[in-house]
Deep mutational scan, measured.
Amino acid sequence: SRHTFEINGERWTVEGVSEELKEILRAAERASNDEAERLLRLALKLI
């Protein structure tokens, strides 16, 4: 499935992501810059 999210003013669209990964991306959208970066690094390990 496709998911579009915005982090630090940048929009991203990813396809074929699991519900778990979507949850991480949604958390990154709400997080501070440092926390968002940490969550994105974690998410990339899952891809």
Results as ranks from 00 to 15, higher is better:
1 S>M: 12
1 S>A: 12
2 R>P: 11
2 R>E: 12
3 H>E: 15
4 T>P: 03
4 T>Y: 09
5 F>D: 00
5 F>Y: 05
6 E>R: 04
6 E>P: 01
6 E>Q: 09
6 E>M: 15
6 E>I: 15
6 E>T: 13
7 I>C: 08
7 I>E: 01
8 N>D: 10
8 N>F: 06
8 N>R: 05
8 N>K: 06
8 N>A: 07
8 N>W: 06
9 G>L: 02
11 R>W: 09
11 R>D: 04
11 R>Y: 14
12 W>I: 09
12 W>D: 01
12 W>L: 05
12 W>P: 00
13 T>H: 12
13 T>P: 02
14 V>L: 09
14 V>A: 05
15 E>W: 14
15 E>N: 07
15 E>S: 12
15 E>V: 14
15 E>A: 10
16 G>Q: 06
16 G>M: 08
17 V>F: 07
17 V>G: 09
18 S>I: 04
18 S>D: 09
18 S>Y: 06
18 S>T: 14
18 S>C: 13
18 S>F: 09
19 E>N: 11
20 E>W: 12
20 E>C: 11
20 E>T: 11
21 L>D: 01
21 L>A: 12
21 L>G: 03
21 L>S: 04
21 L>R: 00
21 L>C: 15
22 K>D: 09
22 K>Q: 11
23 E>H: 11
23 E>Q: 10
23 E>F: 04
24 I>A: 03
24 I>V: 09
25 L>G: 00
25 L>A: 00
25 L>E: 00
26 R>Y: 09
27 A>V: 07
27 A>G: 06
27 A>H: 11
27 A>W: 10
28 A>Q: 02
28 A>D: 01
29 E>R: 03
29 E>C: 01
29 E>A: 09
29 E>K: 04
30 R>T: 11
30 R>H: 12
31 A>P: 01
31 A>E: 05
31 A>S: 11
31 A>Y: 04
32 S>M: 09
32 S>Q: 10
32 S>T: 14
32 S>I: 08
32 S>R: 04
32 S>N: 08
34 D>Y: 10
34 D>K: 12
35 E>V: 08
35 E>T: 07
35 E>L: 07
36 A>R: 13
36 A>T: 05
36 A>N: 03
36 A>I: 07
37 E>W: 09
38 R>F: 08
39 L>M: 04
39 L>V: 02
39 L>K: 01
39 L>C: 04
40 L>G: 02
41 R>K: 13
41 R>W: 12
42 L>K: 09
42 L>S: 06
43 A>H: 02
43 A>T: 02
43 A>Q: 01
44 L>G: 02
44 L>S: 03
45 K>V: 07
45 K>P: 01
46 L>S: 05
46 L>E: 06
46 L>N: 03
47 I>D: 02
47 I>C: 11
47 I>K: 01
47 I>T: 04
